[in-house]
């Protein structure tokens, strides 16, 4: 498995914690990760119910189950990325690199890396209503960066496409500057966004590379 060391920020202490970033996850890695995440999902759901937090404010990936998506890792087009600390898996991403092409005019029809799923471990989620601060930061950014690097290595010049959950649109559009294509009826109305070749070059130039 291709692995390198990256640093996460522990929000509470401000300490940098060295963790492993894996680039070739197997089905079993993802199943094991979900096993530890699922009980935390249940705890979080119980806390949200107890505090009567409106459903609209619940994390929209609260009831995901990566075990359902893990078999996709057997596909040649799929690749699994994960960030792993001593305390367990901190974030997962599943990408696909065939069958997906850019929808933007500039590079229309050219291949890109499609981020099928990306999620951080439930204990890394901050929740305003529950007054909870997620443990580690940078996970989402580091995983997205991996998607861009993967695209570059595949010869796709950093082009990336993804369907963001409504709660995540601002992160990808506002922070990383992905171009918003719009709601996609084929994906239950999730907004589709793309990172163009130019945007990727700029992203890598600004320190992400």
């Amino acid at each position: 498995m291709t692995t390198s060391c990256v640093e996460l920020l522990e929000r509470e202490t401000g300490a940098f914690v060295a963790v492993d970033l894996h680039r070739e996850l197997k089905v079993a890695d993802v199943v094991l990760a979900e096993r530890s995440w699922s009980s935390k999902r249940a705890d979080l759901m119980a806390a949200l119910l107890k505090e009567n937090v409106p459903r609209a404010q619940w994390p929209q990936s609260l009831h995901w189950d990566w075990r359902a998506k893990a078999p996709d890792l057997k596909l040649l087009e799929a690749r699994g990325f994960g960030i792993h600390a001593e305390s367990g898996s901190q974030g997962l991403m599943l990408t696909k690199n065939t069958r997906h092409v850019t929808r933007l005019k500039d590079d229309a029809g050219k291949p890109l890396v499609y981020v099928d799923f990306l999620e951080t471990a439930p204990w890394n989620w901050s929740s305003e209503p529950l007054k909870v601060r997620g443990r580690f930061g940078r996970i989402g950014s580091l995983l997205f960066r991996e998607a861009v690097l993967h695209s570059r290595d595949e010869g796709f010049h950093g082009r990336v496409g993804l369907h963001a959950l409504p709660q995540s649109e601002a992160f990808y559009e506002g922070h990383f500057g992905l171009t918003r294509i719009g709601p996609d009826a084929s994906k239950q109305g999730l907004v589709y966004l793309e990172f163009t070749r130019k945007q990727a070059e700029q992203f890598l130039k600004e320190g992400g590379g």
């Binding site: 950014s141 995540s168 990808y172 992400g208």
Partner: peptide, 30 residues
């Protein structure tokens, strides 16, 4: 990535509640 980039990401992630990406959503009951 550069330290400066990492610092910017850490600050940005504080501002955004979610980074989750997914589809087709029906697979996971999302």
């Amino acid at each position: 990535p550069s330290r400066d980039w990492l610092q910017r990401q850490a600050e940005a992630e504080e501002k955004y509640s979610s980074m989750s990406v997914g589809g087709p959503v029906s697979d996971l009951g999302m």
